[in-house]
Computed example of a mutant assay.
Amino acid sequence: MEGLSVSDANLVVYVHPSRSKNVSQAILRELSSLLFKFNETFDGVVLAYAVNALDKHARILSGVHPYFCVRLKANLLLFSPKPNMLLEGKVVKLMRESIHVIVLGFSSAVIVDEDIRDEFRYKSKRGEGKYVSRVHKRHTIKVGTIIRFLVKSLDEEILHISGSLIPDHTGSVGWLDGDVKNSTTESNKKRKQPDGEIEVQELGIASGDTHSANNDRGIKKKKKRRNAEEH
């Protein structure tokens, strides 16, 4: 999935004097406060972090409440969805007008009906709706389906994504990656191959029998003619 990247960052953490007895814990708390929020500095959402190196020499900042300035190096896992990127998410709600998706378990996305290509047709049975492809009947989208969609825009404040299923390379991940298509093709081959062999064998036997039967009839007719001429 696009939109995920790892960044090597040089960070500066300011620690309150009251936490000077456990600086490492204070740093982890500060880094944890960055998680699952859009950060303009990194131009993305911080999903995880790992501290690689910690500067043992802290600098005290002057002021009414002097803070410790600690420098460190960390690896950050960032989620930075941009327009025209391909994302994957799980369908949690599906209606005729829209498809609602959760991406990476925390970011919501919506695909409205005008951004769903005409190939898909909405069907509802016993209160459960789903989108079914007019071209490939086994290509379906319903609640619980993992889909791949195109990013149109991102609301950075609420981490809400507007998506699209217009391109042909979007839809159910299971179908696009060939799981359904391969299983269908293999099952068809298994059904067709024996039937084909049987048909060929049956035709061969039938044609052989017909040929031999015609020969037998011809021989019998010739014998009858000879017998009639002799008499």
Results as ranks from 00 to 15, higher is better:
6 V>Y: 12
11 L>K: 14
11 L>D: 05
12 V>T: 14
16 H>T: 14
16 H>G: 09
17 P>R: 13
18 S>K: 15
23 V>I: 12
25 Q>F: 08
28 L>Y: 10
38 F>K: 01
39 N>P: 09
41 T>R: 13
42 F>Q: 02
43 D>S: 08
44 G>P: 09
46 V>I: 14
52 N>H: 15
52 N>E: 09
54 L>H: 03
54 L>N: 02
55 D>M: 14
73 K>E: 10
80 S>M: 06
84 N>C: 05
92 V>W: 02
94 L>W: 01
98 S>W: 01
98 S>Y: 06
99 I>F: 00
105 G>V: 08
111 I>A: 00
115 D>K: 05
119 E>L: 08
122 Y>G: 08
123 K>F: 10
125 K>L: 13
134 R>L: 11
135 V>T: 13
138 R>F: 02
147 I>Q: 04
147 I>A: 01
149 F>C: 06
159 L>N: 11
161 I>S: 00
173 V>C: 09
176 L>R: 14
177 D>R: 11
178 G>R: 06
187 S>Y: 07
190 K>F: 01
192 K>S: 02
193 Q>E: 03
202 E>W: 00
209 D>R: 03
209 D>E: 13
212 S>M: 01
218 G>V: 00
220 K>A: 01
224 K>M: 07
226 R>V: 11
227 N>C: 04
229 E>T: 15
230 E>S: 13
